[in-house]
Amino acid sequence: MMKTPFGHKVYAMAAEYPSAAALYEAAKRVRDAGFRRWDVYSPFPIHGMDEAMGLGKSWLSGWVLFGGVSGLLTAALVEFGPSWGLYPVNVHGKPWNFWTVPAFFPIMFELTVLFGAFASFFAMLGMNGLPRWYHPIFNWERFSRVTNDGFFLAIEARDPRFTEAGVRELLEQTGGQHITIVHED
């Protein structure tokens, strides 16, 4: 673990960029330099940034598929179990054969959507490691602008290619401003 002369653990070296376009160009350079543990921060999602960072498609969709299928199966169980097995109710003498099955579909659809939506929400939090009450990047006072109009890039000290001089040079070359070391604690 890297430490500053004052004994603070180093989390990352970070820089601020003046615009989304500058951050996008810088991300491509950092990606091409072969870094793995780094991230960019922006007030809104930047179109094309996933490719610029070398990230693929998010497979959160897999969780949503899982959620949707379990919703469908839950609905099937909750409906057919009582209606056909446990407690069949004859309502108004209405038909009672296989061809009435479509009448069960609306609730199957609703629960598919409901479970899919829950999966989407909780997978988003889970895959992002949220909720999280603390993160070292918040130690940088300039960083509070990230939810306003700030564009930031941070390369973590854990990255095998991380060297103080090398990363500083790369951030300077890509037009980074206010380059700084961010403390872990």
């Binding site: 991230d39 992002n128 909720p131 999280r132």
Partner: peptide, 30 residues
């Protein structure tokens, strides 16, 4: 929830938002 605008988070966030939109569309019509 400790949101920090990280692009690694935005990536999953945008997918979640897209899928919620995709789920809500047939839902609202239903």
């Amino acid at each position: 929830c400790g949101w920090r605008g990280s692009n690694r988070n935005w990536r999953h966030y945008e997918m979640a938002y897209l899928l919620l939109a995709g789920l809500s569309t047939p839902l609202v019509l239903s």
